[in-house]
């Protein structure tokens, strides 16, 4: 039977660093995805990935087992990303450096169109103000619930719901405007 997250954390706090390797293995995809979807730049993602897990390791003594470890770790990852973005004040997307779960489409043209569409949607998400972008990423890309997002973002559920509502409409308006621009330029 697999040890629980709390069990592994207790081992880490007892001085067993190898137990942390198991935690890292369990949550690496989640954390990497959160960071990638919030940041976009591949090199930054790798650096931040390491920084987040170092911070998680150093903060293990503050973890409250009443909350899920995924939520707690995602909160740390989100805070690290937002801090970095505020320092940088810009972010960039590199489509060529994406490493994704394999797509089922086999037709090269379809693959290209699908990638184009993903890129445009990705750019639209990246263009959202932070307070709207983060709920979109956490809900639609990472699958966190409203309750979990309230913990991660330290905001009431009602505010997050409102922001997600507005973010969806903003995304739609942005993409519609881009389509019109492309149609006019042709």
């Amino acid at each position: 039977m697999e040890p629980s997250d709390s069990g592994l954390i207790q081992k880490c706090l007892a001085g067993n660093q190898d137990a942390f390797a198991e935690i890292l293995s369990r949550y690496k995809r989640l954390i990497y995805s959160v960071i990638y979807n919030l940041m976009g730049d591949s090199q930054e993602v790798n650096d931040l990935f390491q920084e987040v897990f170092i911070r998680i390791y150093k903060s293990l003594h503050t973890y409250n087992s009443e909350y899920s470890f995924a939520t707690w770790a995602a909160k740390i990852a989100t805070n690290v990303c937002l801090d970095r973005q505020r320092q940088k004040k810009f972010h960039q997307v590199s489509m060529e450096e994406m490493v994704e779960i394999s797509d089922n489409r086999e037709n090269p043209e379809d693959l290209y169109l699908a990638k184009e569409q993903k890129h445009k949607i990705r750019m639209a998400v990246d263009g959202l103000p932070e307070k709207y972008r983060v709920p979109v990423v956490l809900f639609h890309q990472q699958g966190f619930s409203y309750g979990e997002m309230a913990i991660i973002l330290n905001q009431p559920v009602s505010i997050i719901k409102n922001r997600l509502y507005r973010a969806r409409l903003m995304l739609r308006d942005t993409l519609a405007a881009n389509r019109e621009k492309e149609a006019v330029s042709r």
């Binding site: 995809r29 490493v99 994704e100 779960i101 949607i121 639609h140 890309q141 990472q142 699958g143």
Partner: peptide, 10 residues
Amino acid sequence: TLEATSMVEP
């Protein structure tokens, strides 16, 4: 599209 491209492998 967003939900389909959520998980990224490190």
